[in-house]
Design a protein around this nucleic acid. Structure first.
Length: 371
RNA sequence: GCGGAUGUGGUGAAGUGGUUAACACAUUGGAUUGUGGUUCCAACACACGUGGGUUCGAUUCCCACCAUCCGUC
């Protein structure tokens, strides 16, 4: 089935709703953990369920190169391959490919993008059609259109040229799309320019996607610019479809996104920070590697209900991280993901009670206070 | 006992007769936003075995001693 979004309540621009998927109905706004290579690094499906996660991400580019979409298809699709029975969204691979190109003018063509594999240096071409066909085979629940993530800063002329191409690519991808059980999202680009965001959103909406995402953010721009990009794009998106802000996941950004009408977020930050020894807490981010935690036998976050915080101490986690033991990475990944997912749970309750802005202010004031 | 080799920060390891003695690891702090899990940046360090000698000047050259390692009786 195609996913179905139900808008159930609004508090300002913040939206509370549900997302009906092949694998159950989930509430939004939601945070989606990233599992690029068909695994949320260090976690298994039981861990993912336990932290209250719904949708997880995987990546077209990585699975295309290894093990190859045909292998995954033969396994019975991504869910069976990785033994995950929740919804999966696949990113189109554009973001990864664009980080590998050498010469923007030469390697980005109307047909697609030429780049070198990070695995063996092989020259490859990824096109909008190819990206969609791979995703069709992976059989994720939500596929993403192939887009160009415009770097920041970008000139108006370049942003315009690139956005026009992204729109053409979206159409081409949609034309070859062929999987009844899968949904397809369009990606709004346009850089920091309001008219381009508007125009891109309008063109994509005409094509009638199952959902819309806002791309080209968190690429080095300052926060105010990022929030503006979101505002510019979201204004023109339909109320009855989900909005997904790609790559955004700092706790405060989740609040800023929700307050502007975003329903879905994903980010590598919680798991990457975890692997490097950092943890989210209500008082800000902490670095467990710091000397001062060597004999601190309190939990990472005493107000957290996750497996890590209920059973282990800072001193122990610090030891594991410094000793490069994978259990440390795993426990902090569990905590950081649970932290964001719990924020989203609280946000949903606050929206339903028309108290979102109060919760937002309370959270942000405290989070920043000890940073 | 005899012969040989080596002694440079917590560890490993460059190097020089002359202003602030590399570098790496470790340690400490920071970074990280549609993931290249082992990444990047920065800081720190009572370091030239001990005692003499040569020299304007010695970590560097010479002697003795000490320590460690190897070989040998």
């Amino acid at each position: 089935m195609k996913i179905k979004y139900n808008l159930l309540h609004k508090d300002g621009n913040a939206r509370y709703g549900t997302l009906e998927t092949n694998y159950g109905i989930y509430e939004t706004p939601m945070f989606m953990p990233v599992g690029t290579q068909a695994t949320v690094k260090t976690l298994d499906p039981r861990d993912i369920k336990e932290i209250g996660s719904a949708v997880i991400l995987s990546n077209t580019y990585h699975l295309w190169l290894r093990p190859g979409e045909d292998i995954v298809n033969k396994a019975g699709g991504l869910h069976k391959f990785m033994n995950y029975d929740g919804p999966i969204l696949t990113d189109c691979g554009g973001f990864q490919v664009f980080s590998l190109i050498k010469n923007k003018k030469k390697d980005i063509t109307e047909e697609g993008v030429i780049f070198k594999s990070h695995l063996n240096g092989e020259r490859l071409l990824l096109t909008p059609e190819k990206s969609i066909q791979i995703q069709n085979k992976l059989d994720s629940d939500i596929a993403m259109s192939f887009d160009e993530c415009i770097p920041y800063p970008a000139s108006y002329d370049y942003a315009k040229e690139s956005t026009e191409r992204t729109i053409r690519w979206a159409k081409r991808g949609k034309d070859v799309f062929n999987n009844e059980r899968q949904s397809l999202f369009g990606i709004v680009q346009g850089g920091e320019y309001e008219d381009l965001r508007y125009w891109c959103a309008k063109e994509l909406v005409k094509m009638d996607f199952d959902g819309y995402s806002i791309g080209g953010t968190s690429v080095g721009e300052d926060k105010d610019t990022m929030y503006k990009m979101v505002e510019y794009a979201i204004k023109y998106l339909p109320q009855d479809k989900p909005r997904y802000l790609m790559g955004v996941g700092e706790p405060t950004d989740l609040f800023e996104g929700v307050s502007r009408g975003v329903d879905m977020f994903d980010c590598v930050l919680p798991t990457r920070l975890a692997r490097h020894g950092h943890a989210f807490t209500l008082d800000g981010k902490i670095n467990l590697k710091n000397y001062k935690y060597r004999a601190d036998f309190s939990p990472v976050d005493s107000e957290c209900d996750c497996y890590c915080c209920k059973n282990f101490t800072k001193a122990y986690i610090r030891h594991l991280i410094i000793a490069n033991e994978t259990l440390g990475q795993k426990l902090l990944s569990i905590h950081n993901l649970r932290f964001l997912i719990r924020i989203m749970e609280n946000i949903r309750v606050s929206i339903k009670n028309d108290k979102f802005m109060e919760y937002k202010d309370e959270f942000i004031n405290r989070y920043k206070s000890e940073k």
